[in-house]
Design a protein around this nucleic acid. Structure first.
Lengths: 340, 340
DNA sequence: ATTGGCAGTCCCGAGAGCAGAGTGCTAAGC
DNA sequence: GCTTAGCACTCTGCTCTCGGGACTGCCAAT
C-alpha cells in the first residue's frame, strides 16, 4: 500500500525526471517542492515506492527513476488535463483549416502534432471497412491498359491498373461502367467484395472475360482499402531524444518504418472514455518498441468511420502535455472532417 | 600533378576506409594490396595526395581519410561499373514485378533500393508537367460537398473536395462533366491550366458559378500535380551509420523530412551520360546535408515524363556498389513503366 | 511518524602512464 | 631521380588510480 504523499512524490519524480533527464534524489525534491517534510521522510516514501516497483535506482546510490509501472500509475492518476493554450489552439485551426483534401489534412495533422509534442506523430487513414462505394470509373489508358477507379463516400479515391488487351470501345466501357455502378453503388465495401463475383454474368457474353478481370481488380482495391494506411511525421525527433534509448535508435526507426506493426499496435490499444490511451514502454515490447510509449486517440471521419492518431516517443516523455495535444488534435480533426 | 600510382593509392584508401571506417595508413596499404613498392614510397604518394587535398589526416600521425574532393575524384574515375549479381537482378524483377499501381511501384522501388544499398532511398513521382488530362470526373458526395477527380495519362489520379452547396442534380453534373472533359481531355496539364478560365462561359448560366468553382479546384489540382512528390524508405539506415556523422543525425533526419529541400537538390543535380549522378558532401551543404552524398538517376515513366530516384547516405559510402544499384533500378523501372 | 546524523556505496571526471600506429625526414641504394 | 630502410617524434586510445560529489539506508532521538 502506498500512502497519498508517496504518490505525490512519484508525481514529482516523474515530472522532474522528464524535465531534467537525470535521476532525482530526495534532497532535490525537498528543495524544489514544498512538501513540508524533510529529506529523510521523502527517502522513506521513496523506499515504499521502490518496494512497489514504481521507481528504481539506476545504481546503488543515485537518485531514482520511474519504472514503466511508475509511469503507468502516473498517467492513470492524471485526471484533469489542462486545455491547450489559446495560441496552440489557434495554431491548430490556422494550420489545419487550409487543407485541401484528405491526404492534405492528414499530412498537415501529423506535422502539426509532431511540432506540438516534439515526438513522432502518426495518423491512420479512416478505416474503409464501414464506408460505401460511391462510384466506379473505368478508363482506357491504352488498348492494352485499363484503369479502374474506386471512389468511396469517405472521400477516398483508389486506382489500379489492369494490363493486357481489353478490347473495349467506348460503348463497351460504358456498359461495364453502368453495370458495375448499378451493382456496387451504395454498397458497403464488405458487401461489395461479395457481390463482385456474380457481376460478370450480367454483361454481354463477349465482355464477360474482361468483366471478370475488372471485378478481380476492384476486389483487390476493396481489400487494399480495408487494410489501413498510416502517415507519419517528425521521425527526426527520435534522434533528438536519442540518449533516452539504451542502444541505438536504429531498431526504433526500423520498427516505425514498418507500417503493419504500427497499425497493429494502434489497433490493439483500447481508448478509454477520457479520449486518450497510453501504452508505455515494455507494454509495446512485442512490437520492437519496448523503450517507447505511444499515445493514441480516435477521430471520426465523414461517413462515421473511426480512425486513430497519436504520437510515439521515448518512455521518458511529457505525458501530460502530449496527451492534451493528441486529444485536442483528434477533436479538431473530428470537427473538421465531420462537418458535412 | 598526381602520378598514376597516386591515384591508385587514392582508390585503395577510399575503398579501405569505406570498408573499415578507420583511417588507413601506409603500412596497411602495402600489406593488403600488392603495389610492389614499400610503405615509404606509398607515404610519398600520400604526401602528394594530401598536397592536392584529396586526403587528409584526422590527427598528426594517424592514417589518412579521403576528403570530399578525394571522393569526387574517386567517383569520377569510376568507369566500368560492375553489373549486378544475377541474384540481385532477380530480386528486382520479382519484387517490383508484382506491383499493382504507380503508388505501389514507387513504394516497392524505394524499399528495394534501400535494401540493396543500405541507405536511404528516394524516388520522385513522375513529373506531370508534360502529361495530359485523360479524364475529369465529378462526384456529388453530399448536397454540400462535391469531389473533382483528375486522371492523367501517366496513370495518376488526384481528387479534391469542394465544400458548399453546389445545387447540382445528376443532369447538371452530367453536363458539367461532359463540358469539362470536352474542353480539357487530351490537353497537356500546362495548357489545361490556361483553358480553365474560359470554361464557365460555355455552360448553362445557372451553373456558371459552380462551374467556376470547379475550374478553380481543377486548377489547384493541376498545380499540385506539377509540383512533384517524393517517396522515401530506409531512414533507419542513417541510424546504423550514425558514427559517420560528426554530430547527431538529427539535422540530417530533419532535412530529409523536408521534401521540398530534397526535390530541389534532386532537381539541381545533372545526370551525365553514364546515367548516375553523384553529389558529395559539402556540395550539398546548402541543403543542410553537408555530410551526406546523394546518388541520382533518371527513369522514364509512361507518357515520356522523366523523374528521378536515388539514394542518400553518409559521405563515407560504397559509391561503386550503390551507383550500380541505382542505375539498375532506374533502368528496370523505365522498362516496367514504359511498356505500354 | 518524522527527523538529523552518519557511514557506506557508487558514479564520474581528471590526470598519469603506456603501448601502438603512423608520419616525416634523411641518407643511402639502384 | 625514384625508391627504400631506419629512426625520431607525435598523437591517440586505453587502463588505472584517485578524490570529490551525490545519494542512500539505517539508527537513534524526538
Amino acid at each position: 500500500m502506498v500512502s497519498e504523499r508517496s504518490l505525490a512524490v512519484l508525481r514529482v519524480i516523474v515530472q522532474d525526471y522528464v524535465a531534467s533527464r537525470e535521476p532525482v534524489g530526495s534532497k532535490t525534491i525537498v528543495e524544489r517542492h514544498s512538501f513540508g517534510v524533510s529529506a529523510a521522510t521523502i527517502r522513506n516514501d521513496m523506499a515504499q515506492l521502490e518496494e512497489e516497483e514504481l521507481i528504481a535506482a539506476p545504481h546503488t546510490s543515485s537518485g531514482r527513476v520511474p519504472t514503466d509501472k511508475g509511469y503507468r500509475v502516473f498517467v492513470d492518476q492524471l485526471t484533469d488535463l489542462r486545455p491547450l493554450s489559446s495560441g496552440q489552439r489557434q495554431a491548430i485551426e490556422t494550420f489545419l483549416g487550409q487543407a485541401a483534401d484528405l491526404d492534405d489534412v492528414l499530412a498537415r495533422t501529423v506535422r502539426l502534432l509532431s511540432q506540438l509534442t516534439n515526438q513522432v506523430a502518426l495518423a491512420q487513414y479512416p478505416s474503409f471497412g464501414s464506408s460505401r462505394v460511391r462510384h466506379v470509373e473505368l478508363v482506357a489508358l491504352a488498348p492494352a491498359r485499363l484503369m479502374t477507379v474506386l471512389i468511396t463516400d469517405t472521400g477516398r479515391v483508389d486506382q489500379r491498373l489492369l494490363d493486357g488487351e481489353h478490347g473495349l470501345d467506348d460503348a463497351g466501357l460504358g456498359e461495364l461502367r453502368t453495370v458495375f455502378n448499378a451493382e456496387l453503388g451504395g454498397l458497403a465495401l464488405a458487401d461489395a467484395a461479395e457481390h463482385l463475383h456474380g457481376i460478370a454474368a450480367s454483361v454481354a457474353p463477349a465482355r464477360s472475360v474482361i468483366a471478370d478481370e475488372i471485378a478481380r481488380s476492384l476486389g483487390e482495391q476493396v481489400a487494399a482499402n480495408r487494410q489501413d494506411r498510416l502517415v507519419m511525421a517528425g521521425a527526426a525527433n527520435l534522434a533528438r531524444t536519442e540518449s533516452d534509448f539504451s542502444g541505438s535508435i536504429f531498431p526504433v526507426l526500423e520498427a516505425i518504418e514498418e507500417q503493419v506493426t504500427l497499425l497493429k499496435l494502434f489497433g490493439e490499444m483500447e481508448i478509454d472514455e477520457d479520449g486518450v490511451s497510453v501504452s508505455i514502454g515494455r507494454e509495446n515490447e512485442g512490437f520492437g518498441l519496448g523503450e517507447t510509449s505511444v499515445l493514441a486517440s480516435d477521430y471520426t471521419a465523414s461517413g462515421g468511420s473511426v480512425a486513430r492518431l497519436g504520437v510515439l516517443g521515448p518512455t521518458r516523455m511529457d505525458y501530460s502535455n502530449n496527451m492534451v495535444a493528441v486529444r485536442a488534435v483528434a477533436r479538431y480533426l473530428t470537427r473538421l472532417l465531420g462537418e458535412d
